[in-house]
Design a protein around this nucleic acid. Sequence first.
DNA 1: TCGCTATGTCAATGTTCCTTTACTATTGAA
DNA 2: TTCAATAGTAAAGGAACATTGACATAGCGA
Lengths: 63, 63
Amino acid sequence: MKNRLKVLRAERDWSQGDLAERLKVSRQSVNAIETGKYDPSLPLAFRIADLFDLSIEEIFLRD
Amino acid sequence: MKNRLKVLRAERDWSQGDLAERLKVSRQSVNAIETGKYDPSLPLAFRIADLFDLSIEEIFLRD
DNA sequence: TCGCTATGTCAATGTTCCTTTACTATTGAA
DNA sequence: TTCAATAGTAAAGGAACATTGACATAGCGA
C-alpha cells in the first residue's frame, strides 16, 4: 500500500518530526509509514486525511 | 470509530460468514469489527470499501 | 422435537502497529 | 570546520489487529 505522505509533507515544508507532532505519533512512525515499512492503523489514516483535508483514498493508494 | 457494516451486509442478505469469506478474514474478525471491538487494518478497510463499492469514509465514521 | 444456521463470545496464539531509546549519515548554515 | 536539523534504521517492549477452535444461545423449518 503506497502513500503520498512525503509529497504532501514537502508541499507544506514539514519535517517528519513536524508531521509526527501534528498527528500525535512518534517521528519513527511517520518515517516507517513513509518508507513503506507498514501501513497506519485506520484511526491514524483518518487523522492524516483530516490533517491534509483529503480523503483516505487520495493519500493511500492500493498497490 | 463506528461503521455501517451490519447494514451493508443486511442489504445484501449476507451472513457474517459470507462477508468474512469475501474479505478473506475469519468470521470472528467480521463480528469483532461489527460489534466495535476493534477497527480493521487499513488494507482490510480498503478491501471492505472495494467489496461494497464505496469509499472508506462512507463506511467508517469518525466518532 | 430435532437439526441447521446465524450470531456472539472466550481463550490462546501470532502478526502488525506504535512506542522509546539510541545510533549513523547527510545537509546546510554559522 | 563545527553545529544543528533532518532522515533513516535498529532493538525491545507494549498495544492493537486477526487467527483457530470451541462453546452457548436464539430462531426457523422439517
